[in-house]
Design a protein around this nucleic acid. Sequence first.
DNA 1: ATACGTGCAAAAACTTTGCAGTGAA
DNA 2: TTCACTGCAAAGTTTTTGCACGTAT
Lengths: 146, 146
Amino acid sequence: MSRIKERKSKKHSFKRDAILAALCRREDHPSARQIYEELKPSIPGLSLGTIYRNLGLFREEKAAVSLGVVNGEERFDGRTERHSHLICEGCGRVMDLPPELQEELDTKLSLKTNSFFIDTGKTVLYGYCENCLKNDSVPISGHVQT
Amino acid sequence: MSRIKERKSKKHSFKRDAILAALCRREDHPSARQIYEELKPSIPGLSLGTIYRNLGLFREEKAAVSLGVVNGEERFDGRTERHSHLICEGCGRVMDLPPELQEELDTKLSLKTNSFFIDTGKTVLYGYCENCLKNDSVPISGHVQT
DNA sequence: ATACGTGCAAAAACTTTGCAGTGAA
DNA sequence: TTCACTGCAAAGTTTTTGCACGTAT
């Protein structure tokens, strides 16, 4: 009970806590299925529906954030400090934007257009990760579309 | 047959052309369903499957771009000039990033981190649109999460 | 004539939900 | 005890696909 992430709701259960812990421990911004596959072996009586229900709860409580859908699966982040994300168009990897780039983004990009309030803390940047840059023939400059 | 967007593939059909034309005409970055609902009245013998198949084809040909999933539906853009997008977290509206902000983004944001090539032309910025700023109690500064 | 395009309906993939039993406080 | 949590399976949504027929070249 010591190192469990604080949640506003006092309601706990073994499985709920395990799901949040797994989400916070991981840095790969997993989907419901990925968390399920991680926990299922150690918690045999665990169902995917429970993962979905709890992820939804965490999102409501702001204990987790949805990063959008990548390759058909919604991805989540248990780190709730303000930060943006990088998504690899090659392999679908979801990464955190390094703090120094987050700062650059916040500082240099206008926070407001005439008609749109931009929340720079939720920006999603697309591109190609290290691995995909090495392996694939990735357009290194200019126009990249998927 | 005059003002139809050029595609590399020479294959045309009345419906295919109509779908691409509708996609390019609209500025709201529609989903398959939205295009279907627009065209169905004037093209009674049109099926949703055909919309999906053609959107997939356009994406392959790079005649259209997927902007990701908003509220459960994949959104598309027929404008293939390099540009980023704004998505309203309030109403799901998808808008183009104004050219001057695109330029700012390109200029000021590093194009490359050590391990990730950022394609600034595909950035998705989240925030709140004019209408939602007016109507809802939107957090005006700081941490916004959904 | 041949290859491609389409409607239709079935299936697939992901997520949500109702119900009845289990667990937490 | 009481209310919340969960498994299970059914249902809901969006998207994909197989097949037979229709259309473009």
